[in-house]
């Protein structure tokens, strides 16, 4: 049953999605692309781009998009709500019982392990996106135009903090002008 699968996957992503949007990319990628084959790595890159240029969180956007493509509006609703459900439950629990102890020693310990692991997960997500679908012209003897865009974006974003929306628009314009 597709609805149950959607609920299961996005509920799981909601439960284990520590560390915000970028950290959740690798979780979503693993389930949606690798495991259930609901979209290709290329489509996943496209939805990440669309998420960056439209308002709203990446995880909500992916849940809605995957749900819609696999099972229509109802699928989109089910997937999005399943993603948020763990937060609703946890939030009640946290506000009622844990709130006073949020700076608790054990919470600190958990995050001392999680924080570096999340950095690794984000790198893994980026590496998994570096495939021939997203870099079709990479290689010796080819024009490597995609590598140039990737490197230029990286420099502009990391060193000069250029707005990502602007970078995506520029990259799209370059793609339109140069690629065939």
């Amino acid at each position: 049953m597709i609805y149950l699968e959607l609920i299961y996957v996005f509920f799981k992503i909601g439960v284990f999605g520590f560390g915000g949007g970028y950290a959740m990319i690798s979780l979503i990628q693993f389930e949606v692309v690798d495991h259930f084959h609901w979209m290709t790595m290329q489509e996943f890159a496209d939805i990440l781009a669309i998420s960056q240029i439209t308002p709203g969180p990446i995880s909500i956007n992916t849940a809605t998009y995957v749900g819609f493509n696999t099972a229509g509006i109802l699928g989109a609703t089910v997937a999005t709500l399943a993603l948020c459900l763990p937060s609703v439950v946890l939030m009640l629990f946290v506000i009622r019982f844990l709130f006073a102890n949020i700076e608790n020693r054990y919470v600190q310990y958990v995050f001392s392990g999680l924080r570096p692991a999340i950095v690794g997960l984000i790198f893994a997500a980026a590496l998994l996106l570096m495939n021939t679908e997203n870099f079709p012209d990479a290689g010796i003897g080819k024009n490597n135009f995609s590598i140039v865009i990737c490197a230029a974006t990286f420099i502009a974003s990391y060193f000069y903090k250029v707005n990502p929306v602007l970078l995506i628009v520029l990259a799209g314009a370059c793609g339109f002008l140069i690629s065939s």
Binding site: Y22, I25, Q42, A45, D46, L48, A49, Q52, I122, F123, A125, A126, L129, M130, E133, N134, F135, P136, S146, I147, I149, C150, A151, A152, T153, F154, S157, Y158, P164, L167, I168, L170, A171, G172, A173, C174, G175, F176, I178, S179, S180
Partner: peptide
Amino acid sequence: RIFKGIRPCVVALIL
């Protein structure tokens, strides 16, 4: 063609 340019850009925006 537009998305051919955008995909490698997204990878850098995650890196």
